[in-house]
């Protein structure tokens, strides 16, 4: 019961925050709305008993990505101009509504095979075993490290003053 109440509250907050990202005129307020959205998504992970992912969500998104986005907004001085839309408002709305309709129809008409077991409660140790074991995802982890390194070097080279 408490879990259901938490889910409904966070669902409403996350949808309102996402609408705020799209429809707020002030770019800085849209970024703050995006941060609220990230925090609420971390709460949704907790209701799904994914505690490690919730902590990572707070660290990576709320801590790092939001700071980067706010820094970019400050450096590009676009706050006064607001966030105008282009001329494709109605076709984009139709595309988004059609995608939403197809996804909701597919989700509700599929009979999912829900597992009987309850999910693992502290997920950090099993997740580490999955990620770093020989039979797990150790090669993708190494590739992800290379990707991060390439992204860091690329970002420094692109953003550097000539």
């Amino acid at each position: 019961m408490g879990l259901a109440a938490a889910f409904w509250i966070m669902a409403v907050v996350v949808v309102v925050a996402a609408l705020g990202v799209v429809f707020l005129r002030n770019v800085f307020r849209a970024a703050l709305s995006l941060i609220l959205c990230f925090i609420t998504v971390a709460g949704l992970y907790i209701t799904l008993s994914a505690d490690f992912l919730a902590a990572v969500q707070i660290l990576v998104y709320v801590g790092a990505i939001s700071v980067l986005i706010i820094l970019a907004i400050m450096m590009t001085r676009e706050v006064q101009q607001g966030s105008p839309s282009n001329r494709m408002k109605i076709p984009a709305f139709i595309v988004a509504a059609v995608v939403l309709g197809i996804m909701i129809y597919t989700v509700t008409s599929t009979s999912w095979r829900i597992a009987a077991e309850s999910p693992l409660s502290p997920t950090t140790i099993p997740l580490a075993t999955r990620l770093f074991s020989e039979s797990g995802f150790i090669l993708p982890v190494e590739i992800a490290a290379m990707l991060i390194l390439a992204a860091i070097v690329g970002a420094i080279v692109i953003a550097r003053e000539k």
Binding site: V21, V22, V27, E78, P84, S85, N86, F93, A96
Partner: peptide, 15 residues
């Protein structure tokens, strides 16, 4: 869908 609508319509690249 909300994100898709925003990504298709907004003109500010940060948004």
């Amino acid at each position: 869908s909300i994100g898709l609508y925003g990504a298709l319509t907004k003109r500010n690249a940060v948004i």
